[in-house]
Design a protein around this nucleic acid. Sequence first.
DNA 1: AGCACGCCGACT
DNA 2: GTCGGCGTGCTC
Length: 620
Amino acid sequence: MTVADVSFDVPLPHPFSYRVPAGWALVAGQRVVAPLGRANRTGVVIALREQADDPRLKPLLRVLEPRPVLDTEGLALARWVAEQSLSSLGGTLAALLPPVASLPRGEAGAARERAALEGGRPRAARSLVEGAAAPPRPALLVGTGRETRLLERIGAGPALVIVPDLDAAARWAPRLARAGRVVRLDSGVEDAERAAAWAALRSGTAALAIGTRSALLAPLPPGATLALVDEHEAAHKPPGPPRLHSRDVVLERATRERLRALLTSATPSVEMWWRADSGRAELSAAEPGAWPVTQVADTRGILRREPLTPSLARALRETLGAGRRVLLLVSRLASALACDECGAILRCPDCAIALAYARAARTLTCRVCARTTPLPDVCPGCRGRRLSPFGWGAERVEHAVRRRFPGARVARYDPEATRGARADAQRRAASEAQVVIGTRGALRLFGPGALGLAGFVAPDQLLRIPDFRAGERLFALVWAAAERVVRGGALILQSQSPDHYVLDAAVRQDLPAFYRHELKFRGELGYPPFRRLAVITVGAKSAADMRRRADDVAAALGADRELTVYPPAPDRRDRARRIVVKGRDDLSVRLTAALAEFRAPRARGLAIVGVEVDPVEWPT
DNA sequence: AGCACGCCGACT
DNA sequence: GTCGGCGTGCTC
């Protein structure tokens, strides 16, 4: 009998086997409905095989679509993604497939017949036809006009453009539409439209498609272009499956299927820059475009009670006078409260992190456990009476700016302010304000050239975050702000370390200078792109159990001499242990081998909570 | 992940 | 005497 191995969206490493009813012409890559446990669930056929009759196997119930959503290559790529990220194939597939198209009633049977007719046709002896031609080198498009250059290279397609989020999908669709019919694969459109888009790409009715990471496996004809917009964006690797950065999937797919990969970014990831630097990608740069008048204002010794240096205050006044808009960027770190007598920062007694100081409400709030207390009169440590704010959160800066510029329309735009009931009002106020004080997310309010002045109040706070990508992230942020400043406008960076290479490279609009420094530092400390990282989280019921299990896992990893294993460190408010591992290109394979005994289904007791390969956000 | 089965506390 | 807590185990 014929048996189908079916992968479901369950966190299990293995597929389930079913009997294929006689007369079905099923192929791998088709979605089917089959009984699993007590329910009927949708899964993907990942393999078909002949074997002796086994009465224990249940039959498949029905085929969902006339044709496979994935061809053999797509299936193989999904398997690669799952292996690389140490996650289940079923979950990975579920995240990389379009919604199921709802067939009009009565067509289901017909669909099955069509499947029999055309489903089995393998989509390519493609690589044979094209022989051993080397796959085109990926191109990295940086600098001014990179998006126009991307559109030029794409032409009328065939091409699939992957963008970081739904907003970007909505923005890109009309731009792409100037060259031909564009279909959308992102969840910003109805399910039926997404499903139809996938089908249109496969049949060739549409040659241009746009989507987010869920579209990474959408069908493309030979010779097509696979584009990734804003390659450096963390949104290309959000939590959840597929647990790889879209960049890695794009590059791998392009190599396997000989597609042309095009990636754009104002400030590429260090990984991608290194790839171009070492000749494994073409760097398409441009003559430097307009850049704001940029200045680093030294804040050493003068920023305790006043967030604006004379330079920034003057620029603010002039910009407002010229009728242009101002964005003051604050780090997402809120202000804290410090004791002037003993020097301590007030911390949450439970979580040990600095309490966030809310000036207007006169409260202290813990960001982890949400405990809120009224402002104390004295320092809990030394009973000192002089408590003063420390660090420049949005609220404190807003207060200072209002005091200094009483006539200006000032609005705050940060995650705090744009949450809850007043969110809409706040957003509207920010879109009309002359001075916006906000975090990174506030950049979305401004298009290119929309700002007269961008000012970074205390970017040092972002550099102090214990994450090896802190510099890269600040550089990207400064650059993104600079690109939004109008020709002749100003960019002011306040800092206690005015010579820092991140600031220096941004001031001089010198992309290579930043990467030179950054690569040197990454190389010396063994960080990506020179080593790969993974974070393994271990949990257990009791503290002692957790410690023992974490030590066991660390020991198993350490037995592989190719891996560098760091000692288990407290995580999740000390409810888990975190083990950082460094390895080489084969990190995933080695992790899979070393962790096998802990990840086995029968290894009960919730030993391993999570494995995160190539983390983008450092866990704090 | 669901969703069962399976043994110990506060309720009509 | 039951309803229900979520610990443990299975799903072809």
